[in-house]
Design a protein around this nucleic acid. Sequence first.
DNA 1: CTAGTGACTGTTT
DNA 2: AAAACAGCCACTA
Length: 107
Amino acid sequence: MPSFYEEVYRLTRLIPPGRVTNYGTIAALAGHPNAARAVGYALRALPEGTDVPWQRVINVKGHIPLKGRDPHETDLQRVLLEREGVVFDADDRVDFRAFGWEGPSAG
DNA sequence: CTAGTGACTGTTT
DNA sequence: AAAACAGCCACTA
């Protein structure tokens, strides 16, 4: 039985390029719809050179808060997403209605 | 097992 | 809309 972390990383890798999703979705796909906290905890533990597209996982606000983390990481998030084709709003936020990813079954 | 912490989210003021 | 409070889960000591 895979650990919660492995599930989170695995599901995060399923997110197609040019799409984004929130922690709640990943948590739900992992089997715990209210474990968004734990999802963020898992992604936070990821290194820089990881093969997990953590940048495609953002909060309901549309981005990752810079609290407790160097702006370099969060800034990289926007850069990576823009390189994938994701467009940011005037408030540096992503529109889930345009780039939101509900899950592998949703397509 | 108990206590503390956090890349979250929803409800209430 | 912004701030404050409560609920949830997993990791660490």
